[in-house]
């Protein structure tokens, strides 16, 4: 065999595509999603749809009092009965979904955006800025979050914006730490060195090279924070520091229904079940996303 023929053969042999091209991309990601997570995604979609369509689905106004007698049991008119003020529990639960999803989603978005940005910056800056930033965040993280939230919301007065921003910022330290750790794994990789050798700026490296690699982490983080925010916002509302009345809120509903538990359990059980199912759904989805993204990301 002539040399050039051997050469041609090497090239040909080396050009054979790998036996199992692993597809990367959205479709492959969806294909790897475990079944439980797919069901969870579907349930979450139902939650979102029901919340969005609440004005059309709800048989009564959520705020109107005495649409029925107080503490009516579930019936064909009032699916989940009525509360102490004769409001329709079913309608209030539907509208409560809007409050819960929007507030928790908004808070989680804030957490992930701020925590993600800080995590990226700290991971790439390193050195003294990283040390100071992390120690500062650790101090913040060491204060129990419910107490801190109560202090802030109590001081500023409860409003939807205050609750969302407070809950959102509270989780920033832990999100920062997670994103920073994920980003640090990539800062040491050769593609970052290659970018530095090309003379790319810090911002360009953080945004173009590292951010796409921690996108999965951010998604998981967003999901975890949503579940967490649902619980914390519910707890705040339960303690009277949620969205001001008459906004229908699951946490507040549980608190209001507490006094009449001996008359009717539905004003408490219905919102509690809604919160529990939402948190479970979000957690299942989070778990599935984390698995589908694989251990490397």
């Amino acid at each position: 065999m002539s040399d050039s023929k051997i050469f041609a053969e090497w090239i040909a042999a080396a050009s054979v595509p790998p036996a199992r091209p692993r597809r990367s991309g959205t479709r492959a990601f969806l294909a790897r999603l475990p079944r439980a997570a797919r069901v969870a995604a579907l349930v979450l979609l139902v939650y979102a749809l029901v919340s969005a369509l609440a004005p059309w689905l709800a048989p009564f106004s959520p705020a109107e009092i005495f649409v029925g007698a107080p503490f009516e049991p579930p019936s064909a008119t009032h699916f989940l009965g009525t509360d102490a003020l004769g409001r329709d529990v079913f309608s209030r639960v539907l509208y409560g979904g809007r409050t819960a999803l929007l507030m928790a989603g908004g808070a989680a978005l804030l957490t992930t955006a701020v925590g993600g940005a800080l995590g990226l910056v700290l991971s790439y800056c390193g050195g003294l800025a990283d040390e100071i930033g992390m120690r500062f965040l650790e101090v913040l993280a060491s204060i129990p979050s419910v107490i801190l939230a109560l202090l802030v919301v109590g001081a500023l007065g409860p409003s939807i914006a205050v609750v969302v921003v407070t809950v959102g910022l509270l989780a920033v330290p832990s999100s920062t730490r997670v994103v920073r750790a994920a980003a640090l794994a990539f800062v040491a990789e050769d593609f970052v060195l290659a970018a530095r050798a090309r003379g790319e700026g810090r911002l360009a490296i953080a945004l173009r090279e590292i951010l796409p690699n921690v996108a999965g982490t951010l998604l998981v983080e967003f999901s975890i924070r949503t579940g967490w925010a649902v619980i914390l916002i519910g707890a705040l509302a339960f303690l009277g520091f949620g969205a001001p009345p008459p906004t229908p809120d699951w946490g507040a509903m549980i608190n209001e229904g507490r006094g009449g538990l001996d008359a009717s359990i539905w004003p408490v059980v219905a919102p509690a079940a809604a919160i529990a199912a939402l948190v479970l759904t979000v957690n299942l989805l989070t778990d599935g996303i984390a698995r589908a993204l694989g251990p490397a990301r």
């Binding site: 050769d190 290659a194 003379g199 690699n213």
Partner: peptide, 18 residues
């Protein structure tokens, strides 16, 4: 920077997977 280029040992690490 353009005239001096470097190629690393492991392409898994030197190419951005994303």
């Amino acid at each position: 920077r353009r005239e001096i280029q470097i190629i690393f040992q492991n392409p898994d690490s030197s190419l951005n997977r994303r």
